[in-house]
Design a protein around this nucleic acid. Structure first.
Length: 417
RNA sequence: GUGGCUAUAGUGUAGUGGUUAGCACAACAGACUGUGGCUCUGUUUGUACGGGUUCGAAUCCCGUUAGCCACCCCA
């Protein structure tokens, strides 16, 4: 006996009976994005490792512990993409899309990879639908991006998804605030949990993510990012909020909301859903006005988000009803002669775009009828020796149970049905 | 990455050291010799993997793998 093969840890199959719901969401996204003026882009799954260390941030957990990175045969450092924004920006710069596209609004759908400990809603290969709106610094651009995202949730019957927003301010504000926070917390570092002590030195903003009660109590009194924005950033955030209200999007300002990727600046947001467990973020995004320059381009404002498709499915699986395609006709064939006729008939029917199916190899008629029933087909066309002798076929309607005989040569004429 | 829980036919489960591992649903076949759904009858399929303890292990122990929960992280 050879060893049973199985999928790798954290990798899973999306099976035929689930795929309808995935396609439903993907198609809803494609339709919406077209409507909002986004064009699809497909980037490679493998990239130079440096692309991610430079964008997501050298010190982040994603880069340090979760990226599938390795050397290829030419000793180059490459990695499976852990997220979609950096590759899109790379493609944007490499192909000069700023010059080629009058308006650069892009979307992507595809797998991402992070080597985390798996859990429901957290696989090592997971799927994201994302949007990047490049070149606009207006607060209304933020609103537009959030609007298309919320529309997608609506399309997937997740009207109860909750939107949280915050602003980290521009690069300067961010640095400035980190300093303020450091000073404000200096006296309380001892009281923080072990993780937060590390964060204090490494990535102090992330202390706001902590769920530990003591930490939260300490933070409650601590200064908040949004309270320390420069006038422009303050104004920007205010206009985003006004804009959201104007287009009827409900949101909550969450002063504790910070993001784990270094490139975020200004508006940040996160969508959660109550159907999910502790992995409850189903989408997130924000502004990344410094990223394009960081990757070698001209200073260019940009804003985007990514939806976790797996989590979207987890939250919405029971609510999405993909329309089923019903098989028009099942050919019940009895005997070799009938099989021969059947293959020709299938070809003719399929040529006409008729959805048809059969099961070659002549089981009993009863078993074929049962099969037809399980497949929920509309009609069964029975062809056995008796029919061939009489040059006919029997057409049975599975719903009404009515049967009629038609001439064999007319069997592919659907208008006779 | 840390801690914990779990693993029995395709699915959901029973079985707390005793021999044929039980049940339901599903599947397949028959009753109906060429006609589906209902009913009845029958059949197939399982102790995740590897060690150990024991006369005897699904059951106890260790390891591995995987999943789940929380943390971490994040979509």
């Amino acid at each position: 006996m050879t060893k049973k093969l199985a999928a790798l840890k954290g990798m899973r199959d999306i099976l035929p009976y689930d795929i309808g719901k995935w396609r439903y969401a993907e198609e809803a996204a494609r339709k919406l994005f077209a409507n909002f003026g986004y064009a699809e882009i497909r980037t490679p799954i493998l990239e130079e490792t440096a692309l991610f260390t430079r964008s997501i941030g050298e010190g982040t957990e994603i880069v340090q512990k979760q990226m599938f990175s390795f050397k290829d045969r030419g000793e180059r450092d490459i990695a499976l993409r852990p997220e979609g924004t950096a590759p899109v920006v790379r493609a944007y710069l490499e192909n000069g899309l700023d010059m080629k596209m009058p308006i650069c609004k892009l979307f992507y759908i595809g797998p991402m990879f992070r080597s985390e400990r798996p859990q429901a809603g957290r696989s090592r290969q997971f799927y994201q639908i994302g949007v990047e709106s490049i070149g606009f610094n207006s607060p209304q651009a933020d609103v537009d991006v959030i609007a298309v995202m919320m529309k997608l949730f609506e399309a997937c019957s997740l009207e109860d998804a909750e939107l949280n927003i915050n602003s980290l301010g521009c690069e300067k504000d961010k640095k400035h605030f980190e300093q303020i926070l450091k000073e404000a917390l200096a006296a309380d570092v001892k009281r923080l949990c072990e993780d937060c002590k590390k964060r204090y030195d490494k990535n102090i903003l992330r202390i706001f993510d902590c769920k530990n009660e003591t930490c939260r109590a300490v933070l409650h009194a601590a200064p908040k990012v949004a309270e320390h924005l420069c006038p422009e950033c303050r104004m920007h955030f205010e206009k985003v909020r006004e804009g959201l209200t104007a287009v009827g999007i409900k949101y909550r300002v969450e002063p504790f909301l910070v993001r784990g990727l270094d490139y975020y600046t200004g508006t940040v947001f996160e969508v959660t859903h109550k159907n999910l467990g502790s992995q409850d973020a189903v989408a997130a995004g924000g502004r990344y006005d410094g990223l394009i320059q960081e990757l070698g381009g001209e200073p260019t404002p940009a804003c985007g988000f990514a939806v976790g498709l797996d989590r979207l499915m987890l939250a919405a699986a029971d609510r999405i009803k993909p329309q089923e395609t019903r098989i028009e006709v099942f050919l019940a064939l009895l005997g070799e002669e009938a099989d021969k006729l059947g293959i020709k008939l299938l070809k003719e029917l399929r040529g006409k775009g008729v959805l048809c199916e059969t099961c070659f190899g002549a089981k009993s008629l009863k078993s074929q009828m049962r099969l037809a029933d399980r497949l929920k087909v509309k009609r069964v066309l029975i062809i056995g020796e008796d029919e061939i002798a009489k040059d006919i076929a029997v057409l049975r309607d599975m719903d009404t149970k009515e049967q009629k005989e038609i001439k064999l040569k007319d069997a592919a004429d659907t208008h006779l049905w």
